[in-house]
């Protein structure tokens, strides 16, 4: 049950509109905190931790662009502090710098992770496509080699049976000629396969080509 709910929340956040909506709500909430707790009540500790929820989420979702938000929040925090105290002090400056630093770190990590994930999905897709191509190729080889050999074999077996039971039929020559032609075509099909392996036929992925031609 808990897992289902977590998944539902996770899926909800996949929608870019929902992400924007969440960030706008958090921005409004942070402005409210700055206005009431800091400016109105004059408390400048603890409430700024809430800013990190906004900044971390923004950094995860929008990477380096979230740093601008951190700068805006930091500057706003410094201005409000200046309004209250009438002078510029170190604590709000440090807090503003921490906003920017934490956001930048999360943004870089998140961007790198997303880049790896993208590459991983891309390479998985390429592997799957290559695998599919190989399966089609092997199937076609089986179609054009194994089955024709079976046909020639069956035709010759039938001819043998007929010769045994009734003696050589009048059309023996043409039937043998046909089987010779069939075997010639099978050899040509085999040469096509070899050609495809030796040349740079893009239908066969390089690793598989190397494997088949061992």
């Amino acid at each position: 049950m808990g897992l289902i709910n977590t998944n539902r929340v996770f899926n909800w956040f996949r929608d870019s509109e929902n992400k924007k909506f969440t960030l706008v709500l958090l921005v409004l909430f942070c402005l409210l905190l700055e206005e009431t707790i800091h400016l109105y009540w004059g408390i400048e500790l603890a409430y700024t931790h809430v800013f990190y929820i906004l900044l971390v989420l923004a950094a995860i979702w929008y990477h380096q662009r979230a740093v601008f938000l951190a700068i805006v929040l930091g500057v706003m925090h410094i201005i409000v502090s200046y309004e209250i105290l009438g002078e510029l002090t170190w604590p709000p400056l440090l807090r503003a710098m921490m906003f920017i630093l934490v956001t930048a770190i999360v943004a870089v990590i998140s961007a790198t992770k997303d880049e790896y994930q993208k590459e991983f999905i891309q390479s998985k897709k390429v592997i799957e496509e290559n695998h599919e191509i190989l399966i089609s190729y092997i199937t076609e080889c089986a179609n054009r080699l194994r089955h024709p050999i079976e046909i020639v074999h069956d035709n010759l077996r039938e001819l043998e049976k007929q010769v045994e039971q009734e003696g050589p039929p009048g059309d023996l020559k043409i039937r043998l000629q046909l089987q010779i032609k069939n075997t010639e075509q099978i050899i040509a099909n085999l040469q096509d396969l070899n050609g495809a392996i030796v040349t740079d036929d893009k239908e066969i992925p390089e690793a598989y080509r190397e494997f088949i031609s061992r």
Binding site: E140, N143, H147, P148, I151, N182, Q185
Partner: peptide
Amino acid sequence: ISTMLIYLPS
């Protein structure tokens, strides 16, 4: 159809 596989791709 099967004999045609000797001469042509599927």
